[in-house]
Simulated scan of single mutants.
Amino acid sequence: MKVLATDLDRTLLPNGSWEPDPQAVDLFNRLTREQDTHVIYVTGRSLELTEQAIADFGIRHPHVLIGDVGTTIREHQDGGWHFDEDWTTHVRAKSPRWNVAGIKNAVAGIDGLREQPPENLNPFKQSYFVDHARNEAILKLVDEQVKGHFDESAIYSFDSQSGEGLLDFLPTSANKQTALEFVAGKLGLEKSEVVFCGDSGNDVFPLTAGFSGVLVRNADEQLVSSVKQAQAENPRLKVYFAQGNFNGLSGYYTSGVIEGACHYGVLEL
């Protein structure tokens, strides 16, 4: 089985500041279908926002959607979505102290945090906008109020489009990495048999967890630095940095996903 997992925004989706290759999305769709590739989207987007991306950018439906920063898993079969209740059971068992109300109360008085709208929240995801200019001080306060009390992890990222910081509280057992590990396990695959492509923030976890990693050419400098540091500490990590000039593709966004997938032999051009 050939498995290609990818983040969406500014990875598979050409929605950043770099100029995309106009043919890349159609090429991705055609190659993955013709070459019988099992496609997994791993994204911070909800189901509704993922469907919007599919409509807006013309990307194909995946076989599996790991959504909401890894807190939900759905399979796409026979034209419909099927929620993976096994994942919910797994997360509750692994993170028994997880408590959304407790987290909300703990950070309620921190200036510079603003709760995201309801469509960005779910029982395993409590998210905030952060004043990025003051993110270090804010995150220090968050750490003091929350850390270790709720079986939680706090994941910070920066939205270069809006200029806002993004803070997600998730159960320690539910993130992009653990969800992708769960899906790989259900498919009977070792992590190294799964290619994962990313560009920023919370992609660092699956990129440094033993999957066959790909950083698209437009990846954030902070992510590139973090991944290279992880490689220095663990030379066995497999990570490919898209460079462009590959079969006429630039290496940005979808083109970088295709380049990386070809590097590992999941796709062929």
Rank of each mutant, 00 (worst) to 15 (best):
R10C: 08
L13M: 12
L13I: 13
N15S: 06
G16D: 04
W18K: 15
P22K: 10
A24V: 00
L27A: 04
L31Q: 04
E34C: 02
E34A: 05
T37V: 15
V42E: 05
V42H: 02
G44L: 00
R45P: 08
L47P: 04
L47C: 05
Q52H: 14
A53E: 02
A53I: 03
I54G: 11
G58R: 06
G58N: 07
P62K: 05
I66S: 09
G67W: 04
G67L: 06
E75T: 15
G79K: 10
G79N: 12
W81H: 10
H82I: 14
F83R: 08
F83A: 14
D84V: 01
E85M: 04
T88F: 09
T88Y: 12
H90L: 08
V91I: 14
K94M: 14
S95V: 09
P96W: 03
V100H: 06
V100Q: 11
G102C: 08
G102D: 05
I103F: 02
K104W: 05
K104T: 09
N105F: 09
N105G: 13
A106T: 11
A108S: 14
I110G: 13
D111W: 01
D111I: 05
Q116P: 07
Q116I: 02
P117R: 07
P117N: 12
E119N: 15
L121Q: 15
N122F: 01
V130H: 11
H132W: 07
H132I: 07
N135T: 14
A137G: 07
D143Q: 11
Q145N: 09
K147W: 02
F150M: 07
E152R: 08
S153H: 02
D159V: 00
D159F: 00
D159S: 13
S160E: 14
G163I: 05
D168W: 05
F169D: 07
P171F: 01
N175T: 02
N175P: 11
K176C: 05
E181F: 01
A184C: 06
L187H: 00
L189S: 11
E190K: 15
K191R: 15
S192R: 15
S200R: 08
N202W: 06
F205E: 13
T208P: 03
T208G: 06
A209M: 09
G213L: 03
G213M: 00
V214T: 03
R217C: 01
N218H: 01
N218T: 08
E221P: 01
Q222A: 14
V227A: 02
A230E: 02
A232L: 13
E233M: 15
P235S: 11
R236N: 12
K238P: 00
Y240W: 04
F241S: 12
A242I: 10
N245W: 06
L249M: 14
Y252V: 13
T254F: 12
G256T: 02
V257W: 07
V257H: 06
I258G: 00
E259M: 08
A261E: 07
C262P: 04
H263R: 13
Y264R: 14
G265P: 01
L267N: 08
E268H: 15
L269G: 07
